[in-house]
């Protein structure tokens, strides 16, 4: 059901863990729905110099988190914010329809971490990041019951 690329990222996920001196932390999803991604980043001079993830979830959730860290590592905030869930799916050479939500979660994790970076500096992230994936609507989207 998964592409070789997904299985490769599932078997040997890149950038697992937590960045020690992180100044940007985003957590999306919730345990009830079976997917949680926590992305930690070190951002300096608007560049993501380090990024790591921890994910609780299915094979696709692990693979999307892993590839998302690769897609943003070393990138400027602007470029990182341009990483969409479609880009995540393409980088993995496809996901089954039922797993597309995992790629959405990966995009949201990137945005949530960057939003946190701005919040820590007293800057309202909404105009820059848009949705920070941390509103009640976002959470209810992942909570089906």
């Amino acid at each position: 059901m998964y592409t070789d690329k997904v299985m490769e990222h599932f078997s040997s996920p890149r950038n697992v863990g937590e960045v020690e001196d992180a100044n940007a932390v985003g957590t999306v999803g919730n345990p009830k729905c079976g997917d949680i991604m926590k992305m930690t980043m070190r951002i300096s001079d608007d560049v993501i110099t380090d990024v790591k993830f921890k994910t609780f979830g299915c094979g696709a959730a692990v693979a999307t988190s892993s590839i998302a860290t690769e897609l943003v590592k070393g990138k400027s905030i602007k470029d990182a914010l341009a990483v969409t869930n479609t880009a995540v799916v393409e980088a993995l050479e496809g996901l089954p329809p039922a797993k597309i939500h995992c790629s959405v979660l990966a995009e949201e994790a990137i945005k949530a971490a960057i939003a946190d970076y701005y919040k820590r500096r007293g800057i309202d992230p909404t105009p820059i990041v848009g949705c920070d994936a941390d509103c009640p609507a976002c959470h209810s989207r992942h909570a089906p019951d």
């Binding site: 079976g34 299915c58 696709a60 039922a98 992942h142």
Partner: peptide, 11 residues
Amino acid sequence: GSACSSGTLDP
């Protein structure tokens, strides 16, 4: 019997 293996969000 996890949600992901059933293709829905519910376990």
